[in-house]
Structure formats: C-alpha cells, structure tokens
Amino acid sequence: MVNAWYMNDNDAEDQRSERHLSPKEFVSLDELKQKTGVLYFEIDADNYETEGKLSKIRTDRGYTYSDQLEVSPKTLDNYLAKIKSFFTEHIHSDEEIRFILNGSGYFDVRDNRDKWIRILVQKGDLLILPAGIYHRFTLDHNDYIKVIRLFVGEPVWTPINRPADEHPARVDFLKQYPIEA
C-alpha cells in the first residue's frame, strides 16, 4: 500500500530523504485522488503478466506502448545529471504512468493548494499522474528503482518545466483541480 504525506520545502535537506513536516501529515489515497487526480493501483509485481490487473488497466485506459527503465548509479548513464533533471518541477502533456517492478523512490506532486505531497512508491505500486500536474521524481536512499513505463501511443518523455501555466495540459488540469486559496 502506498504512503503519501505533505513534505517540507527544505532544499538544504537531501532530496532522497522522507522530508516529513513536523508533526507528520499523511495523505490518504482518497485525498490524493481528490486533491491531485493521482491514481494508485496495487499489482503483484512478481506475477503481473499472469495476474491480469495490469493487462486490464492497459486495456481500460488505452495504454498501447510500454518499456522498462532501471535507475541506479550502475544502470543509468549520466546518473547524477538524470536524477537532477527528474527532480526539476515539471508537467507533461500526457499522463505519466509508472509500475514499480523493484526498488523504491518518491514522486512529489502539487496539490490543489500548490503544496508538495511526497508519494513513496515501491515494488507492486502503479501510479498514474494526470497530464498537467506539477511533479518531480527522485530515488530514496536505496538509489535503485526498476519500472515499467506505459504510454498511450508513441512515448513522449518531454518535461515542460515550471512555469507552464499556459500550457494546454496545465489549463485542462486546473479546470478539474483548481488551485484553492
């Protein structure tokens, strides 16, 4: 089961640490969906090919392309530069879908008050970030994650760095999840 919480904005703290508020403020899956549109599914990562959940999600949501990516100092060229770029706040014009096969990391998403929510993803978690949501990714202190990335049609990996409030995907996102004062 996924864990999510409001996080601090202490940029001096290691991006790979939990970065809890004090006191800790956790976010339920219902709140996460309501405030951000992020969807979560739990899938058996060891038996996903025969279990059927991933196949059904792919069919229901129209995901026609997938690949795998391992992120670690040993498996990714230009590791430090890539991790830095993943942690730059951005949006995408399409959903970002990640199924965690092994390892762990954090997706940070902005809620409807523009506050950061940190989502710990681990083996068996499938996370769907809606198009237009400000987010970023980092590994945790284990420095390893292996994921399946899913796409509708041809893959688009282009991050659109903040500010991108005029981008059509962001405009559409804000119609569904308007920023509250």
Score class of each variant (00 low, 15 high):
residue 166 E to P: 14
residue 146 K to L: 04
residue 60 D to A: 07
residue 93 S to C: 10
residue 144 Y to C: 07
residue 109 V to W: 00
residue 139 L to S: 07
residue 115 K to D: 14
residue 106 Y to E: 00
residue 60 D to K: 05
residue 82 K to E: 12
residue 6 Y to M: 00
residue 19 R to D: 03
residue 170 R to N: 14
residue 108 D to S: 01
residue 156 V to H: 08
residue 31 E to V: 07
residue 171 V to I: 13
residue 147 V to I: 13
residue 6 Y to F: 09
residue 91 I to P: 07
residue 176 Q to N: 13
residue 155 P to V: 01
residue 18 E to C: 05
residue 52 G to V: 07
residue 23 P to A: 09
residue 112 N to D: 12
residue 128 I to A: 03
residue 19 R to L: 11
residue 34 Q to A: 14
residue 48 Y to P: 04
residue 122 Q to G: 13
residue 95 E to S: 01
residue 3 N to A: 15
residue 39 L to E: 14
residue 57 I to R: 09
residue 175 K to S: 02
residue 137 F to M: 08
residue 74 K to N: 13
residue 167 H to R: 15
residue 59 T to A: 14
residue 90 H to V: 04
residue 109 V to D: 00
residue 157 W to V: 06
residue 171 V to A: 08
residue 51 E to P: 08
residue 70 E to T: 14
residue 84 K to V: 08
residue 143 D to K: 05
residue 159 P to C: 12
residue 98 R to N: 10
residue 68 Q to T: 15
residue 88 T to R: 15
residue 35 K to W: 10
residue 131 A to W: 01
residue 69 L to R: 11
residue 93 S to L: 07
residue 43 I to S: 07
residue 102 N to V: 00
residue 154 E to V: 12
residue 178 P to V: 04
residue 148 I to H: 02
residue 17 S to N: 10
residue 100 I to Q: 03
residue 57 I to N: 11
residue 94 D to C: 04
residue 28 S to L: 06
residue 149 R to T: 02
residue 132 G to Q: 12
residue 23 P to N: 06
residue 25 E to S: 14
residue 14 D to E: 04
residue 9 D to Q: 12
residue 115 K to V: 03
